[in-house]
Write a protein that binds this DNA or RNA. Structure first.
Lengths: 233, 233
DNA sequence: GGATTTATGACCGATATCGTACATAGCGAA
DNA sequence: TTCGCTATGTACGATATCGGTCATAAATCC
């Protein structure tokens, strides 16, 4: 039914309620969903494609603080009760998403246990991801971080091939394009990826995992293998 | 009554319920509160001192993923419904804390709106902090990060002086002790801090702010902006 | 088909940080 | 007091990454 994993996990009545009030929209690459601290009007559940949450610094440099694909949603601030976006969300790889108005979403949170459970699960995975990313970007060299990030993006795309320029990768990882270029060359020489003018393919996932840091596995586990949860009022 | 800002913000009935079932304990520097993924039995609200949440990598390197002082608590995993610690929490600067058993805490969450509100507020601030730290550790040089971190630690201590070895700072920021030593020298030359054998004093907060990155302000705002200034020294 | 834009590959010197090692000063214990 | 431990200051070469620039190939537009 829904590719989005959170939506797919909801009980039928919750899903019916949400779907009734929502709409499907395409996401074009580069499109900004929310500016940082913008008023959040919808929870956006990607069905396909990847949204990057970006930090933009005063000096113009930027770096990704997290990303969202079919396994999550944009607008976590709603759950935290803030109402303003925690970062700048930009479409990194084009796709489409379900836009759920905040009123319908809040009501669903209130009414359906399956929605609350899903939010707790996502909140936990998301928090673990953020914590691991703090460590990763402090400790791990650029080639390992890029390898990790390519694997994560491939996971979130549920695809081995997608469109991404070196420039986009550089902005995302807070590195220079020249550095990305060099590492991409190494990864191609190693046969881990194939790359040409934005058309990126992960050709050998095992090789890419070998070149990435332990953070990839830890984050993947946070999203894909923690299931025990308890309900919260 | 309570120095801990979360406890201080609770309604009298909630506070009475929590205090009744809890106990005060000292925290010695170096003491481990929870190992990573350990079973969480208490929510720990520091009254004084600072607890660091550490990531430990397979190669033995470590780095701080966040820290907790009088403005927060250790055991956020409880709120997320996980029950297992999200990182390794270690006492960085000695102090004392209120230990609230998980049963009493869950009950308070269920029963008192003020507890739920406090958790949402803290969750939001904590999430913003993590996101900013991801950006900071990707983009900002060691001297700015150390300056930011000293300011944050001073804030969490509500004091200008505290005990911290260069070795502890190095482990915390994921840098070499030699690097810390160099930067501390610069900060002392600039008159921003005073330092000798672990006895650290922030002598000129303004100078330290000037040398730190914008991340300090952003994180401080996340924790302190929607409340009255709570006696920052 | 030619012009323009986009994305790349590559190069330079500069600099921040690393890994390691070693010598010394203060401090507490015996 | 003397000893031993802890914390420090410092030095060296190695390496990763930066900042900036330029040339070129592919794609796109007219």
């Amino acid at each position: 039914m829904f590719r989005n994993r959170i939506l797919a996990s909801l009980s039928p009545d919750a899903l019916a309620h949400i779907a009734e009030h929502s709409q499907h929209r395409g996401m074009k690459a580069g499109e900004v969903i929310y500016e940082n601290e913008a008023h959040v009007t919808h929870a956006v559940f990607p069905e396909r494609g990847v949204v990057a949450i970006m930090a933009e610094m005063r000096d113009g440099r930027s770096v990704q603080q997290g990303s969202v694909g079919y396994e999550g949603f944009v607008g976590y601030a709603i759950v935290l009760g803030g109402g303003t976006a925690l970062g700048r969300s930009v479409v990194l790889v084009a796709g489409e998403a379900l836009w759920v108005p905040i009123a319908a979403f809040d009501q669903a949170l209130l009414r359906f246990m399956s929605v609350r459970d899903a939010m707790l699960r996502y909140g936990q995975a998301h928090t673990i991801e953020l914590m691991q990313l703090v460590a990763c970007s402090s400790l791990h060299p650029a080639d390992q971080r890029l390898s990790r990030w390519l694997l994560q993006t491939s996971d979130r795309m549920q695809a081995e091939s997608f469109y991404l320029t070196q420039d986009a990768m550089a902005k995302t990882l807070g590195l220079r394009r020249a550095t990305i270029n060099m590492i991409c060359g190494e990864l191609m020489d190693a046969g881990a990826i194939d790359y040409s003018r934005g058309n990126l393919t992960v050709t050998d996932r095992a090789k890419l995992e070998a070149r990435s840091c332990e953070c990839y596995d830890r984050i993947r586990q946070a999203y894909f293998s923690r299931q025990k949860q308890q309900g919260l009022p």
